[in-house]
Simulated assay, not measured.
Amino acid sequence: MAGLDSDQLRRFVADVLAEDLGRDGDVTSVVTVPADARLTAAITTREAVTLAGVALAEAFFRHLDPQVQIERLEQDGSKLKAGTPILRLKGLGRPMLSAERSALNSLQHLTGIATLTRQYVDAIEGTGCVLLDTRKTIPGLRVLEKYAARTGGAHNHRMRLDDGILIKDNHIAICGGITEAVRSASTAKTGLQIQVEVDRTDQIEPALDAGAERLLCDNMSPTLLRKAVQLVAGRVPIEASGGVRLDTIRAIAETGVNFVSVGRITQSAPAADIGLDYS
């Protein structure tokens, strides 16, 4: 569910609710809402979105009221217009009110990521280029945020540091050069693909000669990216990265690179405007 297995889901929901409820619980609802009061509510998007995290939102309500009735009207990945109902709820008032904020926070955050991601994916449609996410995620939320990025149409890059070898400028400086860094990684025989970050076209041949299996062209202009694509000539995949924005990604994708990675889709996505209304 949202990239979490059942144990991870239980822990996440319990931890988030514990953070919100504190030691004494939702005292406002306890002193204002009768224990047997029942409520009917709807969660609705107030703007156009690409939905992500709906099942996770449900889990918060079920955790506090296992008997709550939930009608799921839309699925993750759906592109919704403003005013579209997502969930309908019927159940005890106190637990529903207590779970509301945690459910909405999660749904708004993940949907915000999926919505922004979809905008980037749509911007490069037809180029053959693939959008990648990055490790620029909120600590503790990476699995969820990368799930939302996938839901929006991106492909996941490394989930963790043990997922692949990415030799960057600091590694190169410590090793004494690209050739030394790549050869050191090759000698280790990890079985992982060796990707090398370059920020100048004159670094490409040394990286390939040393055994690089993929290149990350960092902060290169479209002009330099086209030159890089010509120099590589299909020998390895090329990823463009660094400062990519929604208004620049199309020009970058059209240079012929295979991938474009964008940290903004997880790092800077605004929360979606989704609300819960009682009837």
Rank of each mutant, 00 (worst) to 15 (best):
T255D: 04
I113A: 13
D202R: 00
D24R: 14
D65M: 03
R245P: 01
A185E: 09
D122F: 00
I252S: 06
A35K: 12
H63Y: 11
I70N: 08
R158P: 01
D247S: 10
F12C: 07
G152C: 13
G77C: 12
F12T: 04
P34V: 02
E58F: 00
I174Q: 14
L17D: 02
R183G: 13
T45C: 01
V68S: 03
R88H: 11
A185H: 08
N105Y: 03
R226K: 14
A272C: 08
K79F: 10
G53K: 03
S184K: 14
D247Q: 10
S184H: 13
L208T: 06
A35C: 00
R160V: 04
L231K: 13
S98K: 05
V33E: 06
S261K: 05
E205D: 13
L73C: 02
V13G: 08
P85D: 01
R72S: 04
T179V: 15
L161Q: 02
V232F: 12
V143S: 13
G263M: 05
A210W: 06
K168G: 08
Q203F: 05
D20M: 07
I174D: 09
I194F: 01
A2N: 14
A210Y: 02
T50L: 01
D7W: 14
V198T: 11
G211C: 10
A82K: 06
G3I: 01
G83Y: 05
L224E: 14
S102W: 03
S78A: 15
G243T: 02
A188I: 05
I249A: 04
G25V: 02
I70L: 12
T84W: 03
G22I: 10
G176I: 00
Y147S: 09
D5N: 15
R250C: 04
A212N: 09
